[in-house]
Design a binder for these strands. Structure first.
Lengths: 217, 217
DNA sequence: AGCGCACATGAGCTTTCGCTCATATTCTAT
DNA sequence: ATAGAATATGAGCGAAAGCTCATGTGCGCT
């Protein structure tokens, strides 16, 4: 009976989990944001090792009681953080929908993926891992689905190569980008452009299209 | 703090000046193996959630005290398990050194990587994560270095394409394979051949060589 | 001023988990 | 058979972590 899911067992009367409910730039929102950023920073600095609710609250400058006023449990903090980060990525990714040329759209997608994973590399990696451990939260599902749909739409463009299994390809492309960037991040690489170029080679190879322009490797 | 090698720190008598002890491995080895396999099974079934020393000992059919007789701490169990799994991979990978043709060697490497990651997908994924969290154990370093060297040797074969940065390429290839296979494993895919084919496309694209045995994609 | 509501606080409860150590058991040598 | 070394056992200790709740504090309203 450890990890509490997003929903709650006990009768906790008031609002709890929803960070964006009131139109006011309220103290509640401030606290929620402070907690999320504190959680992010702790994950980046100490990993799961130091990722405790007490540490998060202290770093956020709020009491532990306040943290539990806005989040039903530790996992809810993590889920909210995942949602926050994925929303940033999603906003970037969906821009591809308004790019006419297929190649330009693909380029944009790869850049978005690499940029996201490089922005806060350790955080992205750790959250990714937690996401696989946690029960699938609808709020997260919603965001990842939007990303996925943009990929599928891009694959269906005029000018796009034939792709046997688009669903599969969408997952694989994300996996390739994450794989290369995460591993590089762990080794301390920081040059996003180089990484982008390498991811592009792998992705274009995967899709069976020749690398555009490009130096001969 | 804890971590360290798989065996004990005390002076263990080399056992067996008495030749009658042949058919059964020593009890120490039995216990160590039981513990490692128990640890593996718990990780596969419950993830880090249920990965406690008491649970490992119980599942291995030994007492918690015995576990600590052979391992200086919990992390040492994990390190030994990582070493055990990586050694299997390494044995497979280094076979590539005795394959004459460059393409055949690459094919073998990719197959080995995919097979390893697919054999016990969840275990491989979790151990991979732990490896990044733990201080670098020399025994593990040794095994991964051997794998890495085989990759570099393969890249240097006659017939191999020009590769600008072989170190980087070696890391990237492993990352691509892990990325694709891990993500697929999480979605429940089990067809190793299909995965191999996809990894090959990405890898060959990355290396800038056209995919051999052409299925039109 | 007085009242009541909304939220903040943090000491501390409860449980879990890594690990120890006093004791028991098994093995080996004589 | 007996001593003594080697090894196994598991109750339980100390620390850590998630979470609660009795109490405190600020604020709007009358």
């Amino acid at each position: 009976m450890r990890y509490s899911h997003s929903a709650q067992g006990k009768t906790r009367p008031p609002q709890a989990l929803d960070p964006r409910k009131q139109p006011t730039q309220s103290r509640a929102t401030e606290t929620v944001n402070a907690v999320l950023e504190a959680a992010a920073r702790i994950l980046e600095k100490h990993g799961f090792e130091g990722y405790t609710t007490n540490a998060i609250a202290e770093r956020a400058g709020v009491s532990i009681g306040s943290l539990y006023q806005y989040f039903p449990g530790k996992d809810a903090v993590t889920v909210a953080l995942i949602e926050r980060e994925l929303t940033l990525l999603s906003a970037d990714v969906t821009e591809a929908d308004s790019i006419a040329d297929y190649r330009d759209a693909m380029h944009h997608l790869i850049k978005a993926a690499v940029t996201h994973q490089m922005r806060r590399p350790k955080l992205a990696r750790l959250l990714d891992f937690e996401q696989s451990r946690l029960p699938i939260a609808p709020r997260i599902r919603h965001v990842t689905d939007a990303i996925h749909r943009t990929l599928l739409r891009t694959f269906s463009r005029p000018g796009a190569p034939y792709i046997r299994n688009m669903q599969e390809a969408a997952f694989d492309l994300i996996a390739i980008a994450k794989g290369i960037v995460d591993a590089a991040g762990e080794r301390g690489e920081t040059d996003a452009h180089r990484l982008e170029e390498r991811v592009r080679r792998a992705v274009y190879g995967y899709l069976g299209i020749s690398s555009p322009s490009r130096r001969g490797l």
